[in-house]
Simulated assay, not measured.
Amino acid sequence: MIITAAPSFKQIIREVWKPLALLFVWDVFVTVTYYVLPFTAPSLPLTLFGSALVLFLGFRSNSAYQRWWEARGLWGLMINASRSLARQARNFLPDEADELKRSIVLRQIAYVNALRCQLRRQKPDDEVHRFLTRGEADFALARTNVANGIVDGTGRRINVAREKGWIDTIQQTSMESVLVDIANAQGGMERLKNTPLPSHYRFFPTLFTHLLCILLPIGLVETLGFATPLGSTMAGLMFLAVLAIGDDLVDPFANTPHDVPLTAMCRTIEIDLLQAIGEAAPEPLKPDAGGVLW
């Protein structure tokens, strides 16, 4: 996620230079053609087309942003649930179960990092092995859904604590309720990841935006004359920018600079949970040189 007030100039140029160059070349071609072979283009259809496209692109961008914001809200719930689980483990379990307390905390840290990797379509093996023992890690990694396997193992350990008399059934129910919240948040994230916007939301805005960029210089050349390449290119760039916003936000877990900062939030959970049981914690993740928090 880009956290600076505006993307860096280098980042902007890297994202727009290709469409900008193509637009400019096309605009120059239309302008030269107009002065060699003069033509007249009706302006009203282009105006109506542009107005309709603005509404279409705005609706699509809003839909994409709603998906992005829902993803951020689900990860906020995940952070809160992780803190609650660590607090319950620390307060409910007796001193003789210190190893179990630490196991539950480390398993939750491993869980959020495994979930992050799954959502980004990355292998979670290294992250799981960082926090779990070889046997625990292998058991989870054998599951199709590694993150869900880790949560299942945590639930079994809570049940063992109840069988040993370390917690009662009410405390077990309370901890299970937190695990349910965690599972519900994961399900929402997987729904966003596995259910893209319908193809019509992606195909038609792209088609109509590119078509408008082709028609723009034809409709503007009579008015702007030799300034058509500059004016048409900038106008087309605005439409392409709105189109790009929807493309950038539609998948909040694609591991791009515009996504939800999963790595930073996993680090936040790791810090909070380790400090909750009195262990040393790493420093918070900071933005990179480009102002992107991953």
Rank of each mutant, 00 (worst) to 15 (best):
Y201V: 12
I104F: 00
A140W: 04
A64T: 08
M189I: 09
V146M: 01
P287W: 06
L53M: 05
L74G: 01
A142D: 14
T169M: 08
T195F: 05
A110V: 07
N194A: 10
N148C: 09
G165Q: 05
P284R: 06
D138Y: 11
R157D: 13
Q172M: 10
I109R: 04
I170N: 14
Q118I: 01
F203D: 15
F49V: 00
G225Q: 05
G149A: 03
L48G: 10
V105K: 07
Y35N: 02
R67H: 03
L132E: 03
R72D: 07
D168K: 02
F239R: 04
S8Q: 12
R202N: 08
L216I: 02
A254F: 03
T133G: 08
R191D: 09
L46W: 06
L211Y: 14
L48R: 09
G76F: 00
D247S: 12
W75Q: 12
S174G: 11
A81K: 05
T33H: 09
F204Q: 14
D27C: 09
I104Y: 03
N91Y: 02
W69Q: 13
L240Q: 05
A110G: 01
V260C: 06
T263D: 14
R134G: 07
E99Y: 13
K286R: 07
E127G: 01
P252N: 11
T256A: 11
K164W: 04
L74V: 06
Q11A: 15
L141R: 03
